[in-house]
């Protein structure tokens, strides 16, 4: 295995681990509520042996709470399942906006933890690229994470898409950025390997406090 390939796979595994850890954390939170709801029912049934009878409304309330948590956990499992299938094919035609929205959905808890608001401005028409979906998701997450890290004070990140259909691009812009940070964004060996594998380049725009993922022009 070449050093670059090793770097690519290691980075990919880290990304997979980060997303799985976040999703399982959320599942555990829902399980904790379901577990405590079951415990509460046990408590109430024990109390009902000596105290006034258990109110049907109270039981219904707990049952609804459990149902809500099951729906919530199911959504997280569905996301995780879809994400796991990202590695099914070496390359596939992929819609950029849909992929961005999926990564945002998948990593919603991680973004919320950082207190950042991310807004997506949809493209005028679908932009599709033929690429490896898993590593594209990895790159999009790296860009979102970088933008969240760079955003300061007003923690807002705007994601938009280039208008030139022949040159696909995804723009990430922040209201304000931390001093000098724009110079340091990307540039690690791991970033370079991932960008080269996906045939993407990074274009920074200091004036607009942003950067973009840029695909080569299609002929």
């Amino acid at each position: 295995m070449t050093k670059d390939k090793h770097e690519l796979i290691t980075g990919g595994m880290q990304f997979f681990g980060q997303m799985s850890a976040s999703a399982t954390h959320e599942i555990k939170n829902t399980l904790a509520i379901i577990n405590e709801s079951a415990g509460l029912l046990e408590d109430l049934s024990m109390m009902a042996e000596t105290n006034p009878p258990l109110s049907p409304a109270r039981v219904n309330d707990i049952s609804q709470r459990v149902k809500r948590q099951v729906v919530r956990a199911d959504l997280v499992v569905r996301k995780l399942n879809r994400f796991s299938h990202s590695v099914d094919r070496q390359t596939q035609i992929t819609d950029l906006e849909k992929t961005v929205c999926f990564v945002l959905d998948l990593a919603s808890r991680l973004i919320e933890m950082q207190g950042v608001v991310v807004k997506v401005i949809p493209p005028l028409s679908h932009i599709r690229v033929d690429t490896n979906l898993f590593y594209l998701e990895n790159m999009i997450w790296k860009a979102i994470e970088t933008a969240c890290l760079a955003a300061k004070e007003k923690k807002q990140v705007k994601i938009s898409f280039g208008t030139d259909a022949d040159t696909p691009s995804i723009w990430f812009s922040m209201e304000t950025v931390k001093d000098n940070l724009m110079d340091d964004l990307f540039g690690s060996k791991e970033d370079d390997v991932l960008l080269a594998y996906l045939n993407i380049s990074i274009k920074k725009n200091k004036e607009n406090n942003g950067f973009c993922l840029l695909w080569p022009k299609r002929f």
């Binding site: 939170n29 904790a32 509520i33 405590e36 509460l40 408590d43």
Partner: peptide, 15 residues
Amino acid sequence: DEKEFLEIMSERMEA
């Protein structure tokens, strides 16, 4: 940060 968890847990602990 899980409001529902706080509600049930506090009720059980108070019991």
